[in-house]
């Protein structure tokens, strides 16, 4: 009994379960990916998996295509999400917190359920499934992740800065361009991180909304692993991780705080 109490008295010990969790479910899988990626089927060290990726035009094309789709989704999310966030944060246009919650509400429902509902919606409206439906589904699913961080930065912005700009002779448009937009960039950057990264690796949305006609990189990885090609799948995952790692470097340091308070 005394021994147990001793363990609990030291606060650092409380971290042990989390450390075990991280080791088992984050660190170990990453190490496994790394190890598998540099092994051939017999378990010997080789760069064959990467060579295969570079030499196979199909995989490279899927990869580029996925990045393209992710870029389009992200850009559409910014174009749709920024004005929405601006309107929500404007005290004259929006006076209730409820409208904000309404925008965030879809995030409370599982992504697969929402996507299946989208499929049903397209069927009902007799719209063809395919690339268009895919982009629609992606934007629909990830828009709240763009709106919320931008809304958050805009709402926290000191209103006197806008008044100061007006006072110095800026028209409303100039105020928006020279003060509001630059000051909301941290929010936009977190939005990009939260939309771009997951969209590169999704496969469920692509499968459901294109009837498996359009292949994304996530689908390729999933197929390889399902077919027992563990080493090649691991290599592809590693490539994707590196790309995501590089994008996150772009915006590092500025906006750590903005995605924290996501509902």
């Amino acid at each position: 009994m005394k021994f147990v109490a001793k363990i609990f008295n030291k606060r650092a010990n409380w971290a042990i379960p989390y450390a075990i969790f991280l080791a088992l479910f984050v660190a170990l899988p990453l190490v496994l990916i790394l190890v598998y990626a540099f092994q051939d089927a017999e378990g010997a060290f080789s760069l064959d998996n990467f060579r295969r990726f570079v030499e196979q035009p199909e995989a490279v094309n899927t990869f580029i295509y996925s990045i393209g789709i992710a870029l389009i989704t992200t850009i559409l999310c910014i174009l749709l999400g920024y004005p929405a966030a601006w309107i929500l944060s404007n005290r004259k246009l929006n006076r209730s917190e409820i409208t904000v919650v309404l925008f965030i509400l879809p995030m409370w429902i599982n992504i697969l359920v929402r996507t299946l509902a989208t499929v049903a919606l397209f069927d009902f409206a007799k719209l063809p499934l395919g690339e268009g439906a895919l982009i629609f589904g992606m934007v629909y699913n990830f828009l709240p992740f763009m709106i919320y961080p931008i809304y958050n930065t805009l709402q926290k912005m000191d209103h006197s800065l806008i008044e100061a700009a007006e006072d110095l002779g800026a028209t409303p448009w100039k105020v928006f361009r020279k003060v509001t937009v630059p000051l909301s960039m941290p929010g936009v950057m977190s939005g990009i991180m939260m939309v771009f990264m997951p969209t590169i690796s999704t496969f469920a949305i692509a499968e459901l909304l294109t009837m498996n006609n359009v292949k994304l990189f996530g689908t390729t990885i999933q197929e390889n692993i399902n077919n027992g090609m563990w080493n090649y799948g691991a290599a592809l995952s590693l490539i994707m991780l590196v790309i995501i790692g590089i994008t996150s470097l772009f915006s590092d340091g500025e906006e750590q705080n903005d995605s924290e308070s996501l509902i």
């Binding site: 008044e163 100061a164 006072d167």
Partner: peptide, 20 residues
């Protein structure tokens, strides 16, 4: 006149300097 057309300038209590 809207504020940006008025020929006067303001020094704000909390300075309101543009942080960017």
């Amino acid at each position: 006149m809207p504020p940006h057309q008025r020929p006067l300038n303001t020094v704000f209590q909390r300075y309101a300097l543009f942080p960017h």
